Computed example of a mutant assay.
Amino acid sequence: MMNVSSISSHIPSTQPQWVKRFASFGLAAKGVVYCLVGILAFMAAFEIGGRSEQNLTKQGVFRFILEQPFGQALLALVATGLVCYALWRLTQAFLDNERKGTDAKGIGRRAGYAFSGLVYASLAFASWRMVLGNPGNQGGGDTRQTLVRELLQKPFGQWLVGLIGLGIIAIGVYQIYRALSGKYLKNVQTATIKAELKEMIIRSGKIGYIARGIVWGLIGYLFIKAALAANASQAGGSSHAFAFLEKASYGSFLLGAVALGLFCYGIFMFVRARYEVINTR
């Protein structure tokens, strides 16, 4: 069986500038998406502009961009950036630019890069379909519910859905760990950031990763609820997580706080686009 090393040996070596430009453009596009998710979630939390947390998916963000003046061109830029981000993650996975190696830990990290690349490739595909006038499937939560519904019909389906939920929660916990441990700054050249901005930027990254971890954790929790109830409708994506927060005590304030955190995460993606060390070989 061909392993990751043998696959990467058959792929032409990367051109450093190609990788750096794609990574920076991709991170900036990701920043745009998360800033808009944060803004729209905050508006939904306090019922500003008639916004609802029910439509706060990344596809909802794409529709929002499309509705703006020159929206088609703007969405095309974001979609192109998401393609760049996906390609950068896939080069990290298969070309091992980060030198993670082929031991169990390294393969795990590279698998994570590949997963991220595939997720953002699907988002890029969805956004390009909208640019070209074909909205396709507009419900990320519905896609997850379809997956859960199909799994629940399989032998040990509830266990499978529950394990997926635990895995999603683990991703959320890792995001929070990265924030609290400072690992989110590992490849960012903070020494080159202006002193008057550095503290604010570092804090925005920490808050952003914690907020993102909370959202991942809530999505995982909803998967576990769906598994325990054998009810696919209880699973969902970010919009369902936001709705869950909104229904809690002081829900508007909780959702508003998470929304500000996601906005901070988006801002930190711009910082990464500008100051991150991009390994190319």
Rank of each mutant, 00 (worst) to 15 (best):
L147K: 00
V258P: 08
L90F: 10
G133Q: 11
A111L: 15
T146H: 09
Q68P: 09
L180G: 07
G251S: 13
V215M: 05
Y85I: 03
R272T: 00
A243K: 14
S6C: 03
V277A: 10
T57R: 09
R149L: 09
G136A: 06
A273F: 06
I11Y: 05
T57C: 01
A79K: 02
R178G: 01
Q189M: 06
M1Q: 10
I193G: 02
A79V: 04
L262V: 12
G50C: 04
A44G: 11
K20T: 13
S6E: 15
K194G: 12
E246L: 15
N137Y: 06
A230R: 12
L77G: 05
E67P: 00
Q59P: 01
Y120C: 00
G140H: 02
W216H: 13
N55R: 15
Q145K: 14
R178A: 08
A23G: 07
L160I: 14
G165S: 05
A211I: 07
I193S: 02
W88F: 11
G266R: 02
G165Y: 08
Y174S: 09
S9L: 09
V119H: 03
G205D: 07
K186Q: 13
V148K: 06
Y275Q: 00
F156P: 00
Q145V: 06
S5Q: 15
K105D: 10
I48N: 07
Y275L: 04
Q153C: 07
L40C: 12
H10V: 10
T57A: 09
S238A: 11
F253V: 14
L56V: 05
V19Y: 11
S5N: 11
S24G: 07
I278P: 06
G139Y: 08
G266K: 00
R144A: 00
I207F: 14
M43Y: 14
G217L: 01
R129D: 04
M2E: 11
C264Y: 01
P69W: 14
G106T: 06
A230H: 12
A29M: 06
K206F: 09
V148W: 05
Q153M: 13
F94Y: 11
Y209E: 05
W128T: 00
Y250W: 14
Q158Y: 02
A191H: 10
L163D: 00
I201H: 01
R281K: 14
G106D: 08
I171H: 04
I267W: 03
I202P: 00
F62E: 01
A73H: 12
F156L: 14
A41H: 08
E67D: 15
L77N: 07
G157H: 07
F25M: 08
A45N: 13
P155S: 14
G50N: 10
D96V: 09
F46Q: 12
T192S: 12
S122G: 05
A104L: 08
A227Y: 08
S24W: 02
N134D: 12
R212W: 06
G266I: 01
V4K: 03
S249K: 12
P155N: 13
I267D: 03
F46G: 13
I278M: 11
G133F: 07
H240M: 14
H10G: 04
A259M: 10
R21H: 12
Y120W: 13
N55I: 13
I278R: 04
V83S: 00
I11C: 08
R51H: 13
R99E: 13
V61C: 03
F268D: 01
M130T: 01
